[in-house]
């Protein structure tokens, strides 16, 4: 699908992951600024979800028979970072930061898979 957007989400997610990993290493919980970062990354993934749905609705399909896989990846991508953000709310320690970092890195990896699936590779 839209490669520049995929790259943008992946880079933003990786940056968020690094940022929260640093917080975890410094023994700091997730703070308001981190949540601002989570919000930005989430917004990007929502845009990606909308773009993906619009493309599918417009008759564009991923290569091969992988539309279901593509849609499930798209939904996972959107849910990933908000979910770890919620988890971190209940864990006000360095481990909350580590959880957000893990979720953000996961999102970056999911972007690669999403790109593969759209290109016809089977997830």
């Amino acid at each position: 699908m839209l490669t520049p957007l995929t790259i943008a989400v992946a880079v933003a997610a990786a940056l968020l992951g690094l940022w929260c990993a640093v917080a975890a290493l410094r023994d700091q919980p997730v703070k308001d600024w981190h949540y601002a970062g989570i919000a930005v990354v989430t917004l990007l993934t929502v845009v990606q979800l909308v773009v993906g749905v619009v493309m599918l609705a417009g008759g564009d399909r991923p290569d091969g028979d992988s539309t279901a896989v593509f849609v499930s990846y798209l939904v996972s991508v959107t849910a990933c970072v908000p979910l770890v953000g919620l988890v971190a709310l209940g864990e006000r320690s360095r481990w909350g930061s580590a959880t957000v970092a893990a979720g953000a890195f996961l999102l970056a990896i999911l972007q690669l898979r999403l790109h593969d699936v759209w290109g016809g590779g089977v997830g």
């Binding site: 770890v84 481990w95 959880t99 979720g103």
Partner: peptide, 13 residues
């Protein structure tokens, strides 16, 4: 809780 929170999140995912 603590490190377990990270672990349980990864397992859930």
């Amino acid at each position: 809780s603590g490190p377990g929170r990270l672990l349980v999140t990864l397992y859930a995912i």
